[in-house]
């Protein structure tokens, strides 16, 4: 005997299945989407945002799919039955509920989105400023020092100190992305764009261009070193004296 489709038991079963589905889905998504290491303060915020969306995705996904699979199994036509389904054309209360509840969810995620955005883009004191220039198909970093400036083909930054990249392009659009730092920013000709991040783990990373920029876009890389403050100061001193020596020599 077929139960009426508005029987409470259907909804109790589906609710339980949706909860189980959410947990399974979250576990699946979490293992299918392996995050690279978190090497900046911004990475922690970004990953947090991503985790929240994963929870929402897991829930909404299993909500729809479990309901759908449930109807496929429970409300399939039995052999020999040629009758029609139950006749109901809609339910305004339900429609309002599933308009308003998602709207609240949008407000919640809007709030999360705006506060985290402010968080990862705000200016900080004591920023290390590096001028970044992108061109087909390399990167060049310019460091200001007391005695002028010097350029480098690798990006070296001190750990635990906010860094600000002031970037422009010599030719076409490029994009600055170090996956372990998470955040990225396009690099444009004729305009200076800014990207802030605070590295938290010493080590070697890769800067990769993320905007198609022609033939060797795939290979537009630069090495990135995050070092201790002492090592950074030593590197700065060595680079600027080298630059000074070259300037003197060429004079």
């Amino acid at each position: 005997m077929r139960q009426s489709s508005t029987d409470k038991r259907h909804f109790i079963t589906v609710s339980v299945l949706v909860l189980i589905g959410t947990a399974v889905m979250f576990w699946l998504l979490d293992s299918a989407l392996p995050m690279p290491i978190q090497a900046s303060i911004q990475a922690q915020t970004v990953d947090q945002v991503f985790q929240w969306t994963l929870i929402a995705i897991a829930f909404l996904f299993s909500l729809v799919v479990v309901f759908m699979l449930y109807t496929v199994i429970v409300f399939r036509r039995r052999r020999g039955d040629t009758g029609e389904g139950e006749h109901f054309e809609g339910n305004t209360a339900l429609e309002i509920i599933w308009t308003v509840v998602p709207l609240l969810l949008v407000v919640l995620f809007g709030y999360i989105g705006v506060t985290t955005l402010t968080d990862i883009t705000k200016a900080q004191e004591n920023e290390v400023v590096v001028q970044v220039e992108g061109f087909q198909w390399s990167w060049l970093f310019t460091y200001p020092t007391d005695s002028g400036e010097f350029t480098s083909t690798e990006l070296v930054l001190p750990v635990d100190q906010p860094a600000r990249m002031e970037m422009s392009s010599r030719d076409v659009n490029h994009s600055f992305w170090i996956v372990e730092m998470r955040v990225k920013q396009d690099v444009l000709p004729g305009q200076t764009t800014v990207l802030r991040f605070t590295p938290t783990i010493e080590g070697d990373y890769k800067l990769r261009c993320a905007e198609l920029c022609g033939l060797s876009h795939w290979n537009m890389l630069a090495s990135v070193r995050i070092v201790s403050p002492e090592e950074y100061d030593a590197w700065l001193a060595q680079q600027s004296s080298q630059a000074a020596a070259i300037t003197t020599a060429s004079n």
Binding site: T6, V64, M68, R77, G85, F88, W98
Partner: peptide, 14 residues
């Protein structure tokens, strides 16, 4: 959600 409402209580063939 409206699609789910359409399926719910039907006599589905595939």
């Amino acid at each position: 959600f409206s699609w789910l409402g359409t399926l719910w209580g039907g006599k589905l063939t595939f």
